[in-house]
Amino acid sequence: MRNLITCLLCSFIISGCGFSLRGNYELPDSISQLRLASAETHSALERALRNELKPYNVDIIESGVAGDSNLLNVYLLSDTLDRRLLSLFTTGQVAEYELIYTVRYELQFSQRDAQLVEFDIKREYQDDPDAVLAKSRELELVLSEMRKQAANQIIHQISIAQRSSANTAIPKI
């Protein structure tokens, strides 16, 4: 009985302070639809964002379809992957890179100015010239993970921006 009371007390304290699990972003009820457009048709980031929005039951309206002017508009402007050299083998071949995935997008809420947002996601990547095929597959998986993280970050920033007042800028995370 004592353990049960202690457990309940701890859960009330944690929930009372606003704690939520990582990746558990609650989108406001006012975002039931959004218009999603991308500079690059059917880009990998756009597909990742669509997949990450599925659990939130958000209807995604294509950019060319006429609809409510009060919709949230998300414009994916660009996503680029850059590499920065971190270390070399004694033979002079590259041993380690830092992958830098940069995402630029624009949020347009109704009755508000468009907000341009840019952020980077960084990962270290170890290269092995003896396992080129395996490393190319690993690079694809890392890039896919980075896109998924970028999509989650966009959703999180939408959630924060929706709750902020009309005159404040979107906070950077």
Score class of each variant (00 low, 15 high):
Tyr105Pro: 02
Arg123Gln: 09
Gly92Gln: 03
Gln115Cys: 07
Phe89His: 15
Leu107Ser: 00
Arg104Met: 07
Phe89Ile: 08
Leu99Thr: 06
Asp120Asn: 12
Arg112Leu: 08
Phe119Trp: 09
Ser110Met: 05
Glu96His: 03
Phe109Thr: 00
Ile121Met: 09
Leu85Pro: 03
Asp82Pro: 01
Tyr125Ile: 02
Arg83Cys: 02
Leu85Ile: 13
Tyr125Pro: 03
Thr91Gln: 08
Ser87Phe: 14
Phe109Trp: 14
Gln93Tyr: 13
Glu124Val: 11
Ala114Phe: 11
Leu99Met: 10
Ser110Trp: 05
Ile100Leu: 10
Gln115Ala: 14
Arg84Leu: 09
Phe119Tyr: 05
Thr102Trp: 04
Phe119Gln: 01
Gln108His: 14
Thr102Arg: 10
Tyr101Cys: 01
Glu96Gln: 14
Thr102Asp: 03
Asp113Gly: 15
Arg112Ala: 03
Ser110Thr: 13
Gln111Pro: 00
Glu98Ile: 05
Glu96Trp: 09
Arg112Val: 08
Leu88Met: 09
Lys122Phe: 06
Gln108Val: 10
Arg84Glu: 08
Phe89Gln: 13
Thr91His: 06
Lys122Ala: 06
Asp127Ala: 12
Tyr101Arg: 09
Leu86Glu: 01
Glu118Trp: 08
Glu96Thr: 11
Leu86Lys: 06
Gln115Asp: 12
Lys122Thr: 12
Lys122Leu: 05
Tyr101Met: 05
Val103Arg: 00
Glu118Ala: 14
Asp82Gly: 04
Lys122Arg: 13
Gln115Thr: 04
Tyr97Cys: 04
Val117Gly: 01
Gln126Glu: 11
Val103Ile: 10
Glu98Ala: 11
Gln108Glu: 12
Ala114Asn: 09
Glu106Gly: 01
Thr80Val: 08
Val94Phe: 06
Leu116Cys: 09
Thr80Leu: 04
Leu88Cys: 13
Gln126His: 12
Asp120Cys: 04
Leu88Phe: 15
Ile121Cys: 02
Leu86Asp: 01
Val94Trp: 01
Leu88Gln: 07
Ser87Thr: 14
Gln111Cys: 03
Tyr101Asp: 05
Leu81His: 01
Val103Leu: 08
Glu106Gln: 15
